[in-house]
Design a protein around this nucleic acid. Structure first.
Length: 407
RNA sequence: GCGUCGAUGGCGGAGUGGUCAAUCGCACUAGACUGUAAAUCUGGCGCCUUCGGGCUUCGUUGGUUCGAAUCCAACUCGGCGCA
């Protein structure tokens, strides 16, 4: 009996997109769905009740962070992540693969999950910049050594170690240990990294399936390959066909990597064209409104992103008419809500002027109320996309929303 | 009244003869953020600018000097001490 069951209810005609359900041991996730990020077993600034009220069906925590603090074995002694953080719905854990990137190649540099550069010669130039801060993550032959950003201690994470940690944490869906690469890497490096990610995927899969946890924890394999069509398609094929000696494959798939904005759609299309349609697909770390439409249209079932909560803490709030910055002078005297069309508790109860005051005076409630709104906005946006698929008018919804949002 | 210390950009506070339109923090202002090194980070913040530079500033007035926020004098205001 597989730990999760994925069912497709309806598809977008002529596209890869679909609406369905994903049943997990801790509840059913209607898909497509936005997964709320709670890296350190908490969604920053919010209580679990706030997260529920924002409409979240599932949260994603991080293997690396929780391994460092408070330690996965301690969380296991508390009965696992669900009990530890008092979240009774589905939980996913990322493998630490993103930290290979953020604490490695991207450390101390202006390298982000989504980059704006398009010219390959510039990309290579950026990679050759070797000065700056020493990396906290260094890739070895069968794993990655991390220098803790908390206390400087050294840790070596292998695929097996990542799976062990994720077993202790006990999430419903876990990820294979991978290497998130930057589009600023050369093709040769992408090939090397992809080969490594594939080897690690096999180890993750074999190791996971050898443990009883595989009966109640699902494992997703991660497709990489950078901006190269052949690498992306090869990776999707290899990961989706990967089996243990007993013939067991992955329960679902993640699509990883740092992207140049204009590469993202083609990469998702390449991959989802190859991945088997009957298993869930998670576009890792993506979550701006226009990207969510792109992903849903092209067959992505799950997204996660720090943007709603991180942006809220920085004062950026989503509205139907685009993003606003609550710190701007124009909101000091504004009596209305963030977005009159929004049904979140922040918009129903508080004025922009009050939020402006909280933000300017550095009150914690500014982060809380902002996060509630942004999360509700993004989660609800994906729910509306799902409904539009079921209603057969996804394209119309997409067009009308983006017209207002981009204005 | 005498003595003493002080007066710097919205605020706090550096600077004590040239490299000073003046370090820094706060405030203000705008921007960034996409599997969270993130309640974070970046730019702007006297006036004008063809972005080369130009102009007016460091309590007030006068002086010394090639040159003064910096030295001197008087004055104004404030803190402290003694009467």
């Amino acid at each position: 009996m597989a730990p999760i069951t994925f069912s497709i209810l309806k598809e977008i005609p002529g596209e890869l997109g679909r609406a369905g359900t994903l049943e997990t041991p801790h509840g059913t996730i209607p898909t497509p769905a936005f997964v709320t990020v709670g890296t350190k077993a908490t969604v920053k600034a919010l209580s679990p009740q706030d997260v529920v009220n924002a409409g979240a069906d599932v949260v994603l925590a991080n293997t690396y962070h929780l391994y460092l603090q408070p330690g996965d074995e301690r969380i296991k002694r508390f009965g696992g992540l669900h009990k530890f953080m008092n979240w009774n719905g589905p939980i996913m854990t990322d493998s630490g693969g993103f930290q290979v990137f953020s604490l490695g190649a991207a450390y101390g540099k202006a390298l982000n999950k989504v980059v704006s550069i398009t010219d390959p010669s510039q990309l290579l130039q950026e990679r050759s910049n070797e000065d700056g801060v020493p990396r906290l993550a260094t890739i070895g032959s069968d794993g990655v050594s991390f220098r803790s950003h908390i206390d400087g201690s050294l840790h070596y994470i292998t695929p097996e170690k990542s799976i062990d940690i994720q077993h202790n944490l006990g999430a419903d869906i876990i990820f294979a240990f991978d290497e998130c690469t930057s589009p600023t890497e050369t093709v040769q490096y992408q090939e090397e990294a992809l080969d490594r990610t594939h080897r690690w995927a096999k180890k993750s899969l074999e190791y996971h399936r050898s443990k009883p946890n595989s009966e109640f924890q699902a494992l997703f394999g991660i497709v990489q390959g950078g901006r190269e069509e052949n690498l992306r398609k090869d990776s999707a094929k290899l990961i989706s066909e990967m089996r243990t000696s007993k013939g067991e494959g992955f329960d679902g798939f993640g699509i990883g990597g740092s992207f140049a904005k204009e590469d993202m759609e083609t990469a998702v299309k390449w991959v989802n064209d190859v991945l088997p349609p009957d298993k869930p697909r998670h576009l890792l770390g993506i979550g701006e409104p226009e990207d969510l439409f792109m992903g849903v249209e092209n067959g992505v079932d799950l997204f996660d992103c720090v943007a709603p909560t991180r942006r809220a803490r920085g004062g950026t709030l989503y509205t139907e008419n685009g993003k606003i910055n609550i710190g701007n002078t124009q909101f000091i005297e504004a009596a209305g809500p963030i977005d009159p069309a929004c049904g979140c508790s922040t918009c129903r109860n508080y004025s922009l002027g009050y939020l402006s005051h909280l933000y300017r005076s550095h009150e914690m409630l500014a982060s809380t109320l902002g996060s509630i709104h942004n999360l509700y906005f993004i989660i609800n946006l994906v729910k509306r996309m799902r409904q539009s698929i079921l209603d057969g008018n996804f394209k119309e919804f997409k067009e009308s929303f983006l017209n207002g949002y981009r204005q």
